[in-house]
Amino acid sequence: MNYHWNWGVFLQEAPEGGVRYWELLVAGLGWTLAVSCLAWVIALAAGVLVGTLRTVPGRLLPGLAAAWVELFRNVPLLVQMFLWYFVLPELLPPLKRLLADADPTTAQFAAAVLCLGLFTSARIAEQVRAGIRSLPRGQREAAAAVGLTTAQAYRHVLLPMALRIVVPPLTSEAMNLIKNSSVALTIGLAELTFRARELGEYTFSYFEAFTAATLIYVAIAMSANRAMAWIERRVAVPGYIAGGGR
């Protein structure tokens, strides 16, 4: 390959004035991290709740939880992004009036966080459900036998073990979420991929721009991976071998 790499491009001043390209990439990274972190909080909270409800006795709550999962899992992420950003305000006139006066970035950010958070929550719910189902049936019986209510059994017996079991699959979900956040560029949020593409368009240094973006994504994903591995070690149960303990 006979490509002339030009790494100096990051130090050039951007047409937006007063800032250099590397600073735009860093600002994009900031949005990527902000969207990912907030969406992760939503995804984890909603996912654990919905996944738990899928396993409780009765019909209504598991049914509603199943509907939630199907809704957010079966519609493509890109379509969901457009629905949150373009369609939802049309359906809710008060929201549209509110957004008319607001900074468009705020609406983009909120739509991206909600979209990614709820999309990921459906996937986390499935992992949590599988984790609870993987526990021996006797655990539920033992909790009931000592007089714990269903809620207490979940809180003190079932969820503490189920959540430990699902830490590894949740690591993949966290990394997926970070990578999926690049879809927010389609609604105009100036996150990392948006900035990399912009840099390419202005300077034709696409290779440099996307090499940098790729390295940054890899670094974030690896950090998330390490953080989850740390959590996994911290919560490990002495003497318990996951999956094959008995």
Binding site: P136, G138, Q139, A145, V146, G147, R164, G239, Y240, G245
Partner: peptide, 18 residues
């Protein structure tokens, strides 16, 4: 309440591992 007054021991122990 009734269950709390009836102790039960299981074949596979079913202690809470965590």
């Amino acid at each position: 309440r009734l269950r709390s007054r009836v102790g039960m021991v299981f074949q596979h122990f079913e202690l809470f591992p965590h």
